[in-house]
């Protein structure tokens, strides 16, 4: 049923960055004898994406996510390795590939701000050589799916950020791309609008079977949209696994937050890590492979507990742990 539509093998990219010594002397020196250093942005990464998947491609700032996406979308040339997107080599089949993929960069407007979303969609239809009646039909369809009816004839400059992002996504779908690259689509949006955008992305993925390659720093986006996550750090692939496995890996750790009647003096022990100790309020992490939660509660003395909350480690913490430890 599934087939790999993105294949990345041993991909590497190095940048040459100009460096300059401090002060005026350094500035003058760099004119006469400029110095460069090489930065390895992407180091030998490989992965594959199957049709219809929603993949989270995440990593801290400067990890190499953007560089990888730009190589996959034929913007940058790789130094080493191969990429196949829908069977095309982005370095050679740039134009053919452009008809098959869509891109949305949350921090970059691609719409014409003085025109209405409708005129913008017509524009995108024309640049992708789609016949007029087909564009009209597609606009109508996407208008319903993304609930644009209210503002489809309002100039983009007068739209709210949430409305604009919806239009940006629709503009990138006019030519029915098989793969959609979403680069931080919910950046700067309030929680309600974020949720709305996520629902629409999910609906689009279900309706059109569009493969979605998502980068985001928002854990909510990743958790609610993606079934698989690829983590890249310092140019290297550090994790490629299902969201379920990722969570399961960390499920053996529980967070226990307790409000106590009396002050408890607790120290780090095997399987118990004190996260916060404010005397009457405690927050501890229990490693259930070493210590049961019941054991931990005994240490606290159940009669002494006023209120208690036992939870899994938030995904955000799991991800930042992975970011911090390069060797997972």
């Amino acid at each position: 049923m599934f087939m790999a539509i993105i294949e990345v093998k041993k991909l590497s990219k190095t940048f040459k960055v100009k460096i300059k010594d401090k002060g005026l002397k350094g500035s003058l020196k760099s004119i006469i004898k400029p110095k460069y250093k090489t930065v390895k942005a992407v180091k030998n990464i490989s992965f594959a994406v199957e049709r219809g998947e929603i993949i989270a491609f995440i990593g801290p700032n400067g990890a190499g996510k953007s560089t990888t996406i730009k190589m996959m979308t034929s913007i940058l040339y790789p130094d080493k390795g191969t990429i196949r997107v829908l069977g095309y080599d982005p370095t050679k089949d740039r134009k053919k590939l452009s008809y098959e993929i869509g891109t949305v960069f949350g921090q970059k407007e691609q719409l014409w701000t003085h025109l209405t979303p409708y005129d913008n969609f017509k524009f995108f239809g024309a640049i992708y050589d789609i016949p007029e009646p087909v564009v009209e039909k597609k606009i109508e369809e996407l208008k319903m799916l993304f609930e644009l009816d209210e503002f489809i004839n309002t100039p983009v400059r007068n739209l709210s950020l949430g409305q604009r992002i919806r239009c940006e996504i629709v503009a990138s779908l006019i030519h029915e791309p098989k793969v959609l690259f979403l680069d931080e689509p919910t950046i700067g949006l309030d929680p309600v609008v974020k949720e709305n955008i996520r629902t629409l992305i999910k609906r689009m993925n279900k309706e059109y079977k569009t493969t979605i390659f998502l980068t985001s720093h928002d854990v909510g986006d990743i958790e609610k949209l993606c079934k698989r996550v690829i983590i890249i750090n310092d140019g290297q692939l550090v994790l490629d696994d299902t969201m379920e496995n990722l969570k399961y890996h960390y499920l053996n750790k529980k967070i226990v937050e307790a409000k106590m009647k009396e002050r408890v003096n607790l120290d780090d022990e095997d399987g118990i890590t004190i996260i916060k100790d404010k005397g009457y309020n405690l927050k501890i992490e229990v490693d259930t492979t070493k210590r049961s939660v019941a054991d931990a509660l005994k240490l606290l003395n159940p009669d002494n507990i006023i209120d208690i909350n036992i939870s899994n480690i938030p995904l955000e913490d799991i991800i930042s742990d992975i970011y911090k430890s390069k060797d997972l």
């Binding site: 979308t73 452009s98 008809y99 891109t103 960069f105 970059k108 640049i127 050589d129």
Partner: peptide
């Protein structure tokens, strides 16, 4: 680097 947003369009 804004030019990059035009590179992967079919024109």
């Amino acid at each position: 680097g804004n030019i990059t947003y035009n590179i992967n369009k079919p024109y």
